[in-house]
Design a protein around this nucleic acid. Structure first.
Lengths: 156, 156
DNA sequence: ATTTTATTCGCATAATTTTGCAAAAACACA
DNA sequence: TGTGTTTTTGCAAAATTATGCGAATAAAAT
């Protein structure tokens, strides 16, 4: 189908605006919007979107979007944070990763990154609102993204 | 049993230091440490710890600890952040919540909290490394924790 | 100490999620 | 358009996770 892109978009909107506790629930919400798929497809969609299922204090569960999502912009893909945290975006240039933060946050966040002691990262250099991450040779962009996802949103 | 506390502690250590993709895996890791329980218990433990199952880019899954975990300490529960983010802990006194941050972060974070415009929070007052949160009457500690969880880590 | 109350946990099962496979749909392009 | 390739999806089954219930254990109360 050609509505996969659209469906993924709608799913993120739904998850952003409501508490969804199961794929069956999501299925219902989607069909209200005339998007009919099976639960199996949702499982795959959520995996693609890296949506996590997390317990709430009220004893129920909720699907939550990851902190980093890939946005497809005119000039290639671009990873921006869906949260309102201090980290605004992550992009790559060759082997290097560039993290943009709110003004003043860069060095503190770079400290967090360094402090995680991840073997994948050789070091970081921070300005005021920009951090340059120097990954170890052979480390992929995806590995860095996973790492940041985990560093910035949920815990390791 | 009396080793629940210990078991929860060990679980957090394991999840912090390795990639666990299923409860069965966790079961094995625990039994290596002489902690024998059933998967049912793990499901409950993970729910208690608010551990989320999240997809990784390599196509597998991983259980991740939340940024705020309730630590079961002798003098009652106490909520500290497991992440290396700027927020270090949240504790309550009566109706008020006190957030400790890394030095210098308090006002920036208080701004984030205010800016979320949550109806549950009347206002905040920030010093250098401490924020006082004044919740609206009738708002529970758990509600505040949920809110902070969402504010500091994952998206809403 | 005995009874009552609350917690923890295993068992079995229910509920939910993931995935292999094959078919359908979309795409590429000669 | 026809043919080969890739992507998407449903189906059904496998795998995984969640939970009702009762037994066991611990804690509290009298």
């Amino acid at each position: 189908m050609k509505n996969k892109r659209n469906r993924l978009q709608v799913i993120t909107e739904i998850l952003r605006s409501s508490v969804v506790g199961s794929q069956e629930d999501l299925l219902r919400l989607l069909s209200e919007r005339k998007l009919n798929v099976t639960q199996a497809t949702l499982s795959r969609d959520l995996k693609l979107l890296k949506v996590a299922k997390t317990p709430l204090t009220n004893g129920t569960y909720k699907y939550v979007l990851p902190s980093i999502t890939k946005t497809i912009s005119p000039q290639g893909t671009y990873n921006h944070l869906t949260s309102h945290g201090a980290v605004l975006s992550i992009e790559f240039s060759g082997q290097l990763a560039v993290v943009k933060t709110k003004p003043g946050y860069a060095s503190a966040i770079a400290w967090d990154i360094d402090n995680k002691g991840s073997i994948e990262i050789l070091g970081t250099i921070a300005g005021d609102d920009t951090i340059l991450i120097i990954p170890r040779e052979g480390v992929s962009r995806d590995q860095i993204l996973d790492l940041m996802d985990v560093t910035f949103s949920e815990e390791k």
